[in-house]
């Protein structure tokens, strides 16, 4: 009960993308609620999830945009990429077609976000190893070739789900620390709290000085 809901130093925007039925909403639900949602309805447009995490003793609020995977929403969902600090790109290890579509999702992610956006590849449903259609090695290689972080996860068992979300945040935070992510740029997808009106934020300065809104 100690931490108030607004008690954080940064907000990071994430988007979750990937084909229909790969388990995007389930991953989000597992991450925010620690529960598996068995009968998850199709997402229409976008759903939001939030959770406050801690990276290097900084409280960070993740604002997660869970997008619709259906092809007919593709044009709509393109506008959600704007300003994302992290993109979780999900495929289903038991359905090869969802893996084959990754290059198209990656193109969107690259074109519609900024160069510093951290893209994390997730092979979901690793609990269904018997029905595997995409090997770990193959996907790992794809990730390496494209400079993506990668993990296989299970929204059902929760395996690696935390890591995917947290590793993304750590990478973003690291980018802020080493200066490669410019907080002044509009659409960095990162917001320092409390929001100071567009003053340049000096990232060399330890952020906790101005952290803690309450």
């Amino acid at each position: 009960m100690a931490a108030g809901p607004y008690n954080y130093s940064y907000i990071f925007k994430y988007i979750i993308i990937g084909d229909m039925g790969v388990g995007k909403s389930c991953l989000l639900h597992q991450f925010t609620e620690k529960k598996f949602m068995a009968d998850c309805p199709h997402t229409i447009g976008v759903e939001f999830g939030t959770r406050i995490i801690e990276v290097a003793s900084q409280k960070i609020k993740l604002q997660i945009w869970d997008t619709a995977g259906q092809e007919r929403f593709r044009a709509v969902t393109r506008s959600y990429y704007r300003g994302a600090a992290g993109a979780l790109m999900v495929y289903d290890i038991t359905r090869r077609s969802t893996y084959n579509h990754l290059s198209s999702w990656l193109t969107d992610a690259r074109n519609l976000t900024n160069p510093n956006t951290v893209i994390f590849l997730i092979g979901n449903k690793c609990d269904l190893d018997a029905q595997r259609d995409v090997t770990y090695e193959e996907a790992k290689q794809f990730a390496e070739e494209n400079g993506l972080m990668f993990l296989e996860c299970s929204a059902k068992t929760g395996e690696n789900v935390e890591d995917a979300f947290l590793d993304t945040a750590k990478k973003i935070y690291q980018n802020i620390q080493d200066g490669s992510l410019d907080l002044n740029a509009a659409e960095s997808g990162v917001q320092h709290k409390p929001a100071t009106p567009r003053n340049p934020i000096n990232t060399d300065q330890p952020p906790n000085k101005e952290g803690c809104a309450c």
């Binding site: 907000i11 925007k13 939030t50 604002q63 300003g83 997808g189 917001q191 929001a195």
Partner: peptide, 8 residues
């Protein structure tokens, strides 16, 4: 404010 804050 930035969009991410307005959404927040």
């Amino acid at each position: 404010k930035e969009e991410v804050q307005i959404i927040d």
